[in-house]
């Protein structure tokens, strides 16, 4: 794995909301703490105001058998985001940064939606919904700290 950023980006996905064709690119940057453990599995996804699952932006970690440790995402998405190769990458090593870009529909921004990140590391504690950040234009660019594995989480809207 390269020492630099994990630039496993380029995987463009679109969270489609019916009737609204306009979308904008969303760049997510997640830097992990220097915890002592193997690479982390991460799931970056969006929920609506009521906490219902709206879609998956990115999954780090290729073995589906471990997805149950990303327990909130696994439960909420009911497995619907599995096998989507286009938005799946390698697990992220401690201390490294994951940077990915996805397309989100305009209608999701400033509409009560939330970006969440579940994290899990082998033999260590699962950390579902480690990050919960409202998807708003004002929040864009602000770093958020996670409680377990995530040093900082930032997203940019263009």
């Amino acid at each position: 794995m390269s020492r630099a950023l994990i630039a496993a980006l380029l995987a463009a996905t679109t969270l489609t909301v019916p009737a609204l064709a306009h979308s904008r690119p969303l760049t997510i940057s997640t830097t992990l703490k220097n915890y002592s453990g193997n690479g982390a599995y991460l799931a970056v996804y969006v929920t609506d105001a009521k906490g219902a699952y709206a879609g998956t932006l990115w999954v780090s970690g290729g073995k589906a058998k471990y997805y149950k440790h990303l327990s909130d995402w696994n439960r909420l998405s009911a497995g619907s985001a599995r096998g989507l190769d286009a938005i799946t990458g390698a697990s992220v090593t401690a201390g490294r940064t994951l940077k990915v870009t996805a397309d989100v529909a305009d209608a999701l921004v400033d509409a009560g939606y939330e970006i969440r990140v579940d994290a899990a590391v082998e033999d260590l504690r699962d950390s579902p919904s480690e990050i919960r950040v409202p998807l708003t234009t004002t929040n864009a660019g602000k770093p958020h700290a996670g409680r377990q594995y995530i040093q900082s989480f930032t997203y940019q809207l263009q």
Binding site: K63, K65, K68, S71, N74, R75, G79
Partner: peptide
């Protein structure tokens, strides 16, 4: 590890 045998239920 490679999922050739199923060891656990999918979800909670």
């Amino acid at each position: 590890t490679f999922g050739l045998v199923t060891v656990e239920r999918d979800g909670d």
